[in-house]
């Protein structure tokens, strides 16, 4: 049975969690707006059903409530690092395809990319708080995803749609995960260590 947190760590965690929840909420709102603009500018059908897009982390998870705090944070961190790479690629493709004609969408995409990066950093803060090892980017990059196959333009458009849809789902899941982490433990009234299941 892991020892419970000191009151200051629990306080710090609750503060980080609540700030993270607000970040996730803002990110979700911006991603939904971006999604609307993206669908319109790319001439896509918002209701189009799509195959799972390779390399996009899925927000849906089985037995969500059985996850430990560390698992939640590590899965969230891996997902937002993946989204950071995917959004950066989308931004590059956007500039290549549209050049100067890409004004609003490019800026909105860059803004969301910034939020995703900030959120990933926030998750690292949470893991550092628990003196949990943070998987280095290099570890991930070494056996990280192979370079994406050369997609046609329509496939690029669909992948972008898939990325933004899934990112919106992740923002919801992240808020739930962080709320779960912020919950005080029934016994001690202080938040449990991450290893325990709150």
């Amino acid at each position: 049975m892991a020892a419970a947190d000191s009151p200051s760590t629990a306080l710090q965690r609750r503060d980080l969690c609540s700030r993270g929840i607000r970040l996730a909420g803002k990110m979700r709102a911006d991603v939904v707006d971006l999604l609307d603009a993206y669908v319109e500018q790319q001439g896509l059908d918002a209701s189009a059903s799509m195959a799972v897009v390779e390399g996009v982390p899925l927000a849906a998870v089985e037995r969500w409530d059985e996850q430990t705090g560390t698992q939640r944070l590590l899965e969230n961190l891996a997902a937002y690092r993946a989204f950071r790479a995917l959004l950066a690629q989308m931004l590059e493709e956007q500039r290549e395809q549209l050049g100067e004609a890409d004004t609003g969408l490019g800026r909105a995409l860059a803004a969301v990319l910034l939020q995703v990066s900030a959120f990933a950093y926030h998750l690292e803060e949470l893991l550092r708080l628990e003196s949990r090892g943070i998987p280095g980017e290099e570890e991930e990059e070494e056996d990280g995803p192979p370079p994406p196959p050369r997609l046609s333009l329509f496939e690029q458009k669909l992948r972008g749609l898939g990325v933004l849809r899934e990112l919106a789902q992740w923002a919801v899941r992240s808020a739930r995960d962080l709320r779960q982490l912020a919950k005080p433990s029934p016994a001690t009234g202080t938040a449990p260590g991450l290893a325990e299941n709150p």
Binding site: Q41, G43, D45, A48, M50, L98, A101, E155, K157, L158
Partner: peptide, 21 residues
């Protein structure tokens, strides 16, 4: 077409889509 091109979309019975720009 607009700046991101016009999509030519082929919808299949299984719900999948394929397309070109």
């Amino acid at each position: 077409s607009n700046s991101s091109g016009t999509n030519v979309v082929c919808r299949l019975e299984n719900g999948m889509v394929d397309g070109s720009v």
